[in-house]
Design a protein around this nucleic acid. Sequence first.
DNA 1: ACCGCACCCTGAGCGC
DNA 2: TGCGCTCAGGGTGCGG
Length: 291
Amino acid sequence: MPELPEVETTRRQIAPLLVGRRIERVETTAASYFFLTAPQDLIRALAGRRVDALDRRGKYLVARLDEGARLLLHLGMTGQLFSSEAASVRLLSSTARASLAPEEQLEFEPDQHTHLRITLEGRGPQIYFRDVRKFGKVQWLAPGVANERLDRLGPDALDVTGEWLFEASRGRRVAVKSLLLDQRIAAGVGNIYADEALFLAGVRPGRGARRVTRRECHKLAESLRQVLQRSIETGGSSISDYVAPDGSDGGYQDERKVYGRKNEPCLVCGTAIRRRVIGQRSSHYCVACQS
DNA sequence: ACCGCACCCTGAGCGC
DNA sequence: TGCGCTCAGGGTGCGG
């Protein structure tokens, strides 16, 4: 699901519910791939802690806790971090949706995919972290301890410069699309926004990174920023699973130029948008507008 | 160092 | 209805 704009939207909405408040209780599902910190350790470490800040690094959310520890969250493909007061059909299975009467309440009840349930002290909703595929991650970081996942990240995609992209792409034989998806190059870029930025920059996703000119790298950096910022303004893209913490959909799926538009006409020139797998990810582009 | 690929997991949607 | 297949906003680890 979630790329930089969705994670940033999540951060902005969740922060007011968390920051400055103490965690009273945490409930989890059973140990799994999802828990980089074992559920029992997590429960013990978080109880009583106050959340001092909620930061974003690429696609990671990092909660800073009192006493110096940190809580790392990653939404993976299908992660949903939301308030217990959120209501959305995206939080229901398709069978549940089908049996839903038109006027029926969409109130969410924690299910087997709801891996974290955080109760805060005082009044206010609970915070739920639900993730069907469990590609998401949660990890508790002890005070002063570095984390290699975070340390691997390159500059945030919003801060990437054309010169940085140019230098990073010299000698690289991989497709430029794959380079953009490398979190060491531009943290936060994912499949949708890589395709969208490449379209805006007029560069085909399959072109070898080393064949992208300096001028194009500058255009690409600018396109990334533009696409990501616009998506943040609209609350991100809600394509299958993503919901904002308040249960609302994003708006950027309506502004996509290429992603998921296979065989549809290019909005600039009318040529049918092509889909091709590049680096194991589906990629969308216009053969006329992009070279 | 770089590159391509298998794999982690679950569900939706499709053709038959 | 059911089966088998493909696909999905991500990331890691392996071997060549």
